[in-house]
């Protein structure tokens, strides 16, 4: 546990009956960090966040938040955590204004007192302050929920999949807002199933089946990709994937947007591939070496190391 760590989790496990939701998880979050948990549905993100927000009890391990134990210190902690659950915690029949006032009062403060903190965010939705929350668009709901979670100026903000189901514009705005909160030294814990959002965080934990695969700064996580990676394009994508899998030197071949990302055995690459593909009838093949993204790294971490034969999906 470092001196200024806001969250310190060590050897945390949690099961629901037969299901091991979290398996021996450890990590630290420093003050003022935007810390992202990236992983698919069912990886354990929500369970972890619920333990951190004192909503669930850990089975094993220690969880210290803001210097307090998450079990014994839950009353004190609840005053200092802002939490935005996966389903926006808004009252759909109350207006924008009423929702905000309600959460402010419940946390023993007023909207005016901390208005500067939410001003940027709330400005987007203030024109609709008399509208019931249920009638807002997804993006506006998300902004209102964030305002409500922030209104008591929490030291720690926990956001569970805030960008799920929200369009790309609103998502981009949302991340810009989180960035602006940095000047208030609020530590932010955020989860998302979308790999591309990882780069927006200061630090990222890749999580899968209740285990953390890697924790680091996003650039360093992608740097951890140890292989040479090639991007292969052709208009006949399905045929291309089949052909690449059959190519004897291929190690992995995954579709990746409009291209296929390929690694080769022993990272050996020469123009045999091009000749192989041309011989197979492809007329518009382009091959180039490319930098790995976070998703490539996630794929690498998810699959066991080389076994010597072609991997099939």
């Amino acid at each position: 546990m470092t001196a200024n760590s806001i969250i310190s989790v060590s050897h945390l496990s949690k099961s629901f009956g037969e299901v091991n939701a979290l398996k021996d998880i450890s990590f630290d979050v420093g003050e003022g960090e935007v810390f992202g948990f990236i992983g698919p549905d069912g990886a354990g993100k929500t369970t972890l966040f619920r333990i951190i927000t004192t909503l669930l009890l850990p089975d094993e391990g220690e969880v210290t938040i803001l210097g307090l134990d998450c079990v014994k210190g839950f009353r004190e902690l609840r005053k200092n955590i802002g939490y935005m659950p996966g389903r926006f915690s808004l009252y759909m029949d109350l207006t924008v204004e009423e929702n905000l006032n309600f959460y402010a009062t419940v946390f023993g403060t007023t909207v005016r007192e901390n208005y500067d903190l939410i001003a940027d965010i709330y400005a987007h939705i203030e024109p609709f302050r008399k509208r019931p929350a249920g009638k807002l668009s997804g993006g506006m709901k998300q902004k209102l929920a964030l305002s409500c979670a922030l209104i008591h100026k929490p030291a720690l903000l926990v956001l569970d999949e805030p960008t799920t189901g929200v369009d790309a514009v609103s998502r981009a705005e949302f991340w810009e807002m989180l960035k602006k909160l940095k000047k208030y030294h609020i530590t932010i814990l955020v989860s998302t199933p979308y790999m591309d959002e990882a780069m927006r965080c200061d630090k990222v934990a890749l999580i899968q089946e209740g285990k953390i695969l890697s924790v680091d700064q996003p650039e360093r996580i992608t740097d951890g990709f140890s292989r040479r990676l090639f991007s292969v394009r052709s208009s006949e994508k399905y045929k291309l994937i089949r052909a690449l899998r059959e190519f004897p030197l291929t190690d992995t071949a995954y579709p990746f947007g409009d291209s296929v990302h390929v690694t080769f055995r022993d990272d050996h690459y020469d123009d045999t591939l091009y000749r192989y593909l041309t011989a197979a009838g492809f007329t518009d093949v382009s091959i180039g070496e490319t930098r790995a993204g976070i998703e490539d790294r996630f794929l690498e971490l998810m699959t066991p190391p080389l076994q010597g034969s072609n991997r099939t999906l």
Binding site: G39, P40, D41, G165, Q208, K237, Y238, I241, L299
Partner: peptide, 17 residues
């Protein structure tokens, strides 16, 4: 939405197929 990167790629291969 919400699936892991490998499953997602398997899914897209099914779509291509």
């Amino acid at each position: 939405g919400g699936v892991d990167p490998i499953t997602r790629r398997q899914f897209w291969e099914m779509i291509y197929e």
